[in-house]
Amino acid sequence: MKLASYTLNGRPGFGIVTEAGITPLTDRIEGISSLQELIEKDALSAAQAIPEAPSLSPQDVTFALPVGNPEKIWCIGVNYGNRNAEYKDGSDLPKYPSLFVRSRQSFVGNGVPLERPRVSEQLDYEGEIALVIGKGGRDIPREKAHEHIFGLTICNEGTVRDWLRHGKFNVTQGKNFDRSGAIGPWIVTADELDPAGDIAVRTRVNGELRQSDSTANLMFPFDALIAYLSSFATLSPGDIIVTGTPTGAGVRFDPPVWLKPGDVVEVEVDGIGTLRNGVADQEVGNA
């Protein structure tokens, strides 16, 4: 099942997405007012019981983040095997995942422009698969990890490259510019897309293929990430884990190729769909 959050005439809503359109679920499940609440209250079966009756087109709505206010957004760095070689530092494969966190405000939904900030021209793209946690927990064993995944979605983990180097030991600044990345357009539930399968991800900029790889090449597969994260932090329903990007980001071109206003970035993941966002400059006075 594909489940999306959106706004329609200024009102938030959520629903089931099919090729025929969107079946609204807003006000149709008792005690559930959002997709995030449906995840937190383990109410997927109630959504599955609603007869599909598409009454909206995707063009009618503005897609929002599938989970509107996740407690935690974990991001994994350098997780595809050939990305370690991309750094050309001769280092061995890592023993543990690289990890940082992002704020909810650093992401927009599908179709909403990414924002190139006033202070930098080095806005870059990173196409990734993201996991949405359904069942929370601490010290989750790897063999049980997939049971904690509600579903999968797509992320463009946009990065402001020169700000990654402002601090000596962190990348937080360059990863948390408001509206610099995107998540969406919807969540595909784990019963329809096997998290253990070989899932391909591709990124195109203005129609040009820039990134292409599959989860078969992950150094830390989804189950390993969940086990590792939950070894030190309790995972909560609605948490998002952004699982890493393949080679081919703009910073790796010679010279680097940065996103600019008017560009269109499309991240396509087999079994999910395509996350599509334009690029615009930060508006004057936009705080």
Rank of each mutant, 00 (worst) to 15 (best):
G244C: 08
G238T: 15
A182Q: 11
E208L: 06
A49S: 15
G238P: 07
F220P: 07
N156F: 05
N156S: 05
N79K: 10
I133W: 07
T189S: 12
Q211V: 04
L152F: 03
A53N: 14
E37C: 00
A216D: 11
G68H: 14
L114H: 05
Q173N: 03
V17R: 11
W258V: 02
T153P: 04
I241G: 04
R161L: 01
P94Y: 04
G13T: 13
G136T: 04
S214N: 15
G127V: 10
I240G: 07
D263M: 05
I199T: 11
L164H: 00
S180C: 15
E19W: 06
A280I: 04
G134P: 02
S231I: 08
K175V: 01
G68I: 13
P94F: 02
Q173A: 02
N206R: 12
A224M: 06
P24K: 14
Y228I: 10
S231M: 05
G158T: 15
I76K: 08
G278K: 12
D92E: 11
W163R: 02
F177R: 03
T172R: 08
V267G: 02
Y87M: 12
V101Y: 12
I73Y: 04
G10M: 05
P255S: 00
C155P: 02
R138Y: 07
G262L: 03
